[in-house]
Design a binder for these strands. Structure first.
Lengths: 146, 146
DNA sequence: TCTGAAAGTTCGGCGCA
DNA sequence: TGCGCCGAACTTTCAGA
């Protein structure tokens, strides 16, 4: 599926998405056109979903980060899911197996704001809220050996 | 802290981190040098942490994604944290308030691999594992109005 | 490898707060 | 008066043949 060269390209871009073809070519010991072609196919195949930036929530005005476990009330699953998607402070939400239905990550400015948001969905779900104290592991790549 | 122009730049780059200065300038109705200066300061201030790519776990050979709640055993908190950081399949880990100590996100190839990894830390923590069934909200920006 | 094209950077000068 | 912007020219670098 992915060979070693592809993986090198992905690792390099994950570290710096603005690398030029020439710089990438230097990293993987290939010519620029060869790298360009590989890059094109990686995008085309959807391996690379997007070129994006990682932002500091604090600098954006969100000093608090919270993880919320959500358990939908009977018959409210779909309503809840739509409600969650419509809350812009939810920057990530997973539907999971087990006792909980969803796990959502929220960026908020204050505890009060967090409380308001949770009250807004209290008719669709019971919630269990955790405040993020630290991030021992921040978004990183898994092993690329496949 | 951030004015409307900075926010436009960030939103545009979040959507496509490879936009040139000229293209960015077109979006925010400024000249290239002005945008270059703003960009430099956004990086310098740490608002932009990194230029990176978003990858498809499936394409990388990780068909399974899991969220694990971890509760450290007495006196094992620091050992556990070090262990978690050393597991490459953990692509994200938060230290949180409440009943749990950590929430980790794992990319794995099989359920068997997941089991192996969890057994590896069974001497430091009790775990509660969820399998991600869907992602109603994938990584996105919070409102940039601050 | 080469070449045209486009990129980012550096200047002086202007307008606004 | 200082800060930030503009527009042009320069230099380097890039992508495509």
């Amino acid at each position: 599926m992915l060979d070693a060269t592809d993986r090198s390209i992905l690792a390099a871009l994950a570290d710096n998405a603005r690398l030029s073809l020439k710089e990438l070519a230097g990293v993987v010991k290939l010519s620029s056109p060869a790298v360009a072609e590989r890059l094109r196919r990686l995008e085309e195949r959807g391996v690379i979903r997007a070129f994006t930036i990682e932002l500091d929530p604090q600098a954006l005005g969100y000093p608090l980060q919270s993880l919320v476990r959500l358990h939908s009330l009977p018959g409210k699953l779909h309503i809840l899911q739509a409600q969650l998607a419509a809350i812009p402070e939810i920057v990530e939400c997973d539907k999971v197996t087990g006792e909980d239905c969803f796990i959502a990550r929220l960026f908020v400015r204050t505890i009060e704001q967090l409380d308001e948001i949770l009250e807004g969905i209290s008719n669709s779900a019971t919630t269990n809220t955790m405040i993020v104290k630290a991030q021992p592991v921040r978004r990183r790549l898994p092993p690329l050996a496949g």
